[in-house]
Design a protein around this nucleic acid. Structure first.
Lengths: 109, 109
DNA sequence: TTTGGTACTTTGTGTTGCAAGGTATTGAAA
DNA sequence: TTTCAATACCTTGCAACACAAAGTACCAAA
């Protein structure tokens, strides 16, 4: 049983997730589980099944690269790193986001 | 040939269109073409093929109702009206939107 | 050697936005 | 009267996306 509120929030998250990922990775490298934690801390909750394909898409687009690193325990981690192209895309997204905030504000006057 | 920027903006629009529609209709009744113009004025461009199904969905969810009205010229217009349920949903969306703006801000610090 | 924790991946489903094309009404021009 | 342009509404097929659920793999401790 899902609340209306959950639906609303889930719908709105669509389309800004890529922006969130690039933003997180622009500050420091991270692997999927740690990205999930950051998103959770920012109230932008997503699940594994959403994040992994998204990271792969962004890597295929050349926005991210990655490297393997040993974990203190458990299997190795895939650390993602933002590329130059990714930073350029992030700039685009900053502008697009600001524009959308303005648009909503003007509609919500 | 579509620019990266268009893709970015198109993706971000997902999920907030319903919010925009309810917002517009909360101020006054409107028919599809006039809603398109308002969205265009707010830089939230969409096309007919997006808007019509969306209005029908919202009507089926009980968020909107409509009535026919003669046009000064051309076929009659379908004026959409927001319902009480629609206004409740709009309140939800206001809250969800504000939360998302905060989330992005905290990630983009 | 089995168990539990960590981490990455894949599959199937439903929703959404969009391009493109279609239908219907009206009034004015040919 | 027929044709045309403008207005308005609707439908179909497609691709992208978020998500639930299930699966695979690695490691260390019991």
């Amino acid at each position: 049983m899902e609340s209306t509120s959950d639906n609303v929030r889930s719908q709105m998250r669509k389309g800004v997730l890529e922006y969130c990922i690039l933003s997180i990775l622009s500050q420091k490298e991270a692997y999927a589980s740690s990205i999930l934690e950051e998103l959770k801390a920012a109230n932008m909750l997503v699940v594994e099944g959403t994040l992994y394909p998204l990271l792969i898409r962004q890597k295929n687009q050349g926005l991210l690269s990655y490297r393997w690193e040993e974990s203190p325990q458990g299997p190795p981690r895939k650390y993602y790193v933002i590329t130059e192209k990714g930073r350029a895309q992030l700039s685009e997204m900053d502008a697009a986001w600001q524009e959308m905030v303005s648009s909503i504000e003007s509609l919500r006057k």
